[in-house]
Simulated scan of single mutants.
Amino acid sequence: MHKKILLVLLGWLQIMHIKAQNPVIRHIFTADPAPLVYHNTVYLYAGRDTATVDAKTYEMPSWHVFSSRNMVDWKDHGPVLKPTDFSWASRAANAAHCIERNGKFYWYISVMHKNTEVSKGGVAIGVAVSDNPTGPFKDAIGKALITNEMTTDMKHSWDDLDPAAFIDDDGQAYLFWGNGSCKWARLKENMIELDGPVHTFKPDHFTEAPWVYKRNDLYYLLYAANFPESIDYATATDIKGPWKYRGRVQDPVTNSTTTHPGVIDFKGKSYFFYHDGSMPTGSSYRRSIKVDYLRYNSDGTIRKIVETAKGVRKVNQ
């Protein structure tokens, strides 16, 4: 009995410890977290919000990289990538995701494309590459990997948002992305070319921001659902689907109509990253990244993250 009480107290202390650090990035407004674990360090890739307090639209001029060895102290490595680093891009550092393969780091970004003979504009996906997780990064191919014209199932110009890369156990890499519908394609081993057609599907309540990972032979697809956005998820026994809707991970967040999931395992624990607008002067256009523990039931389903009366988020016990 005493042992059980001690374990419960330790669990609550761990939760209190991480809550004391939320938001994890406080000196600037950040959004769209994309965490990566590499060599016992967590690297957090994020967009920066610079909209004014009264703004009613997004201002996202750059992407930052932060790093931590303990999930408490975070180092800002600065605005290491900007839309202007891509000659074909015009503006808007939308959600992005970095992944490591064979000692190189591939950073998939979504950004507005210039009106050119290649594309008439709209959101496109590019890829930058570096030998180091904190850069310097450069455009890997000198053009967009995916343009708005390549996907026609949705008619709006921003349906190619929010890329998320995943490498399966057999070494095959995939890219997931989308707004309005979820899209995916194989990547060649070089990580800078598609290897086959673009596939589309619509998970229940899907809005945008897919995040894919694998745990105990089960594939998980977390995504922003509805609007204002919650985080819902689906699972599959095959990366190609079919995907089974499993419910909600997180209700709509504080003071922001959007949110964005990111999941990692680090030092024996699972973590769930997201953003909200809870910092002073925060809003849907001045967001902040937070993190919570992510826990699973014995059948592999995710325990919902709920909000207490005091507004502190915790994982159900």
Rank of each mutant, 00 (worst) to 15 (best):
M1N: 12
K3A: 14
L7T: 09
V8E: 11
L9K: 14
L9P: 01
W12E: 14
I15N: 06
K19P: 00
A20N: 04
N22G: 03
V24P: 02
R26M: 02
H27G: 00
T30P: 13
A34G: 06
P35E: 04
L36C: 00
V37M: 03
N40K: 07
V42F: 03
L44T: 02
D49F: 08
T52F: 01
T52P: 06
V53H: 04
D54H: 07
Y58L: 12
E59C: 07
E59Q: 13
P61S: 12
P61A: 12
R69F: 09
R69S: 10
D73L: 00
W74C: 12
G78N: 04
L81E: 01
D85F: 02
F86E: 02
A89N: 13
A89Q: 11
A89Y: 13
R91A: 09
C98N: 06
I99H: 01
I99W: 00
E100P: 03
E100R: 00
Y106A: 10
Y108G: 11
V111E: 05
M112G: 14
G122T: 11
I125R: 03
G126P: 07
P133G: 00
P136H: 04
A140G: 03
I141C: 06
I141K: 07
G142L: 06
I146P: 07
T147R: 13
N148I: 09
M150T: 03
D153S: 15
H156W: 10
W158G: 12
D160H: 08
L161H: 07
D162N: 12
D162I: 10
P163R: 02
A164Y: 08
A164M: 04
Q172K: 11
L175R: 01
F176C: 03
F176N: 04
N179G: 05
S181K: 15
S181I: 08
R186S: 05
E189K: 09
L194A: 05
L194E: 05
L194Y: 12
D195W: 07
D195Y: 06
P197Y: 12
V198S: 01
D204T: 15
D204S: 13
P210G: 05
R215P: 10
N216A: 11
Y220V: 10
Y220F: 04
A224N: 06
N226R: 11
E229L: 00
Y233F: 12
T235G: 11
W243L: 02
K244S: 15
R248L: 05
P252Q: 09
P252A: 09
P252G: 13
P252F: 12
T254D: 15
S256W: 10
T258Y: 01
T259E: 04
H260M: 03
G262W: 00
V263T: 11
I264T: 03
K269S: 15
H275K: 10
D276N: 13
P280Y: 08
T281Y: 10
G282W: 13
S288C: 13
K290Q: 12
V291E: 05
Y293S: 10
D299N: 15
G300P: 07
K304F: 08
K304H: 11
I305L: 14
V306Q: 07
V306F: 04
V306T: 14
E307R: 13
A309S: 14
V312K: 11
K314R: 13
N316I: 04
